[in-house]
Write a protein that binds this DNA or RNA. Structure first.
Lengths: 138, 138
DNA sequence: CTGCTTTTGAGTATCATTATCAATAAGCGC
DNA sequence: GCGCTTATTGATAATGATACTCAAAAGCAG
């Protein structure tokens, strides 16, 4: 039987109120700072549940950390993520879906699934970057 | 100055002689089984070097492990990977490149980079899967 | 060969994630 | 509302991949 606990709700809300992708760790830290005595293990479990129910999306950051985000659109879609501020735009990509299927079957592959994510700098961060470029890095 | 050590060569060769993606860990294990007393740290260093020089490609497995593979094609390309046996096909995807750029700029993003990988079951493994389906799993 | 510098490697540290398991509390029937 | 059953929680330990440390070994120039 599936039970409703405030912890699960807290995780769901924390995820929903966040624009970009967040790691389980930072989500946990954030919740504690808001006063929740929620445990780390519980956050992981809740995130895994949400992800498997399709209410959240997960991806691996380049550093190997797992990132989660609440999905507004149910169903399959991809993401455009700012690598500086984490802002995320959901993108539907029928073209890409079809391309993936076609490429897979051309090579005899079945049951194709794909990872398609675009990382970049959002408009805001591009501007910031340009501004800070005058000060030489490191 | 960059020095030539047999260890680095060993890693390069082990990578080249491998069809699919391999993890640093299994590469290290394999090398030791072949008699090399190479150290784990060295394997990691060599792989990171090869990857940054463009001689190897790296991606994150769904389990968060980093996988490496020698790239035959220099330049940008993507992969079609069998999730059972690890066989990999390199795929060029100009369509996808353009799509990624277009989507990014439509949303004001710059400096777009993307992760596009297709996971599936290759023809061989599909057949195996079908065969073993008659015997109930686990 | 000599000397300087890079690289190695054994071990350790770190960090994210998962497993453990006793204590807690949700939801059910009454 | 009450108690019972059982899923859930959470502190902690375990795991596993990767990064760091530093003395010893080895590469390369002269």
């Amino acid at each position: 039987m599936k039970r409703n606990t405030w912890q699960r709700e807290a995780v769901r809300e924390a995820l929903t109120s966040n624009d970009g992708f967040v790691s389980a760790q930072s989500l946990h830290t954030g919740l504690r700072e808001h006063g929740s005595p929620i445990g780390l293990a519980t956050v992981y479990r809740a995130l895994a549940d949400l992800a498997s129910e399709g209410e959240a999306d997960s991806l691996q950051s380049p550093e190997g950390e797992a990132l989660y985000r609440a999905c507004s659109t149910s169903g399959h879609h991809h993401h455009l993520i700012c690598r500086r501020c984490g802002t995320t735009v959901e993108i539907a990509a029928d073209d890409v879906e079809q391309w993936a299927q076609r490429v897979a079957s051309e090579h005899g592959f079945t049951d194709a699934r794909h990872v398609v994510d675009v990382f970049g700098l959002c408009a805001t961060c591009t501007a910031l970057e340009a501004a800070s470029a005058s000060a030489p890095p490191i």
